[in-house]
């Protein structure tokens, strides 16, 4: 009996081994610690690191919930965790609209190139549109230094829906814009963004639980600008990888999604 996907040699090998040297993992969307609303049994860093090591992750870029909620001011939780544990951990500097201090924040990012890939914008949760003036200095900074921005995006959001992303993408051509959750549910909008802007990447976090969206993206956009993400500790890394392996796309596409695109993106942003 063959499991996960009889038609994929990569799936067969991954299911047997649980970790493949020629298919490491690059996860571009993670978090850390507890957050209101849900119980996260792997909220602390140790169980997350255990999974990352077991599955052969080369990079796991996250933003701490403590930073996202502002319960601990500044971005110290993400930064200190990355400094303490090192690879494969990487971070996003969380831009908090009501705590924004662009000169200090941008210097922190520049001073820690081993940690930060760029910024994380959580417009929906912070009630702030991506194109709001308070974010503008950060977009200018990311554009100037050719870094990445992970944006939480969601279907009909007035803060980080497809039109908000489009507004930013039209203005900033040198930021690598990671469309977190692919404007969830508005799959056609995500396709259009990726087609219209070469610096837009579709982050599959929380997309893989709806079977079919991934196949649609590969069919209509190609697999070269799809990034793997889990939201860990929310969602299981092995579950996410299993969804990619099960999907009705080629093994070459799977390699692109799980690691090759991530390797390329890190080179583009010089990280």
């Amino acid at each position: 009996m063959k499991y996960v996907n009889r038609d994929s040699k990569l799936a067969q090998r991954f299911y047997e081994a649980g970790c493949l040297e020629d298919c490491p993992l690059y996860d571009f969307h993670g978090h850390l610690h507890e957050v209101g609303g849900n119980y996260l049994p792997a909220g602390n860093i140790e169980p997350m690191l255990d999974t990352l090591h077991r599955i052969g992750a080369k990079s796991f870029a996250f933003s701490s919930h403590f930073s996202l909620t502002g319960v601990i001011t500044g971005d110290m939780d993400t930064l200190s965790t990355c400094k303490q544990y090192g690879a494969p951990l990487r971070g996003y500097f969380v831009v908090m609209p009501f705590l924004a201090n662009p000169p200090v924040d941008c210097k922190t990012i520049l001073d820690n190139p081993d940690v930060y890939l760029g910024c994380k914008f959580l417009g929906d949760y912070h009630g702030t549109p991506l194109e709001a003036p308070v974010y503008a200095p950060y977009w200018e900074f990311l554009n100037e230094h050719k870094l990445a921005a992970l944006c939480h995006t969601w279907g009909d959001s007035p803060f980080d829906g497809s039109e908000n992303v489009r507004h930013i993408a039209e203005q900033y051509h040198d930021v690598q814009i990671l469309v977190g959750h692919c404007v969830h549910g508005r799959w056609d909008d995500a396709v259009a963004l990726a087609k219209d802007f070469p610096n837009v990447w579709l982050d599959l976090t929380a997309v893989l639980d709806d079977r079919g969206a991934l196949e649609k993206f590969v069919r209509e956009v190609g697999s070269e600008r799809l990034l793997f993400g889990t939201d860990m500790p929310w969602f299981s890394t092995y579950q996410g990888v299993g969804c990619v392996l099960d999907a009705e796309i080629s093994d070459e596409d799977k390699h692109n999604i799980l690691h090759k695109n991530g390797e390329r993106l890190l080179k583009i942003i010089n990280r």
Binding site: Y15, D210, Q239, G242
Partner: peptide
């Protein structure tokens, strides 16, 4: 068919 079988298989196995 709404969700992937392989995701649950990998999660359980590992």
């Amino acid at each position: 068919p709404s969700r992937y079988i392989g995701g649950q298989q990998m999660m359980l196995k590992f």
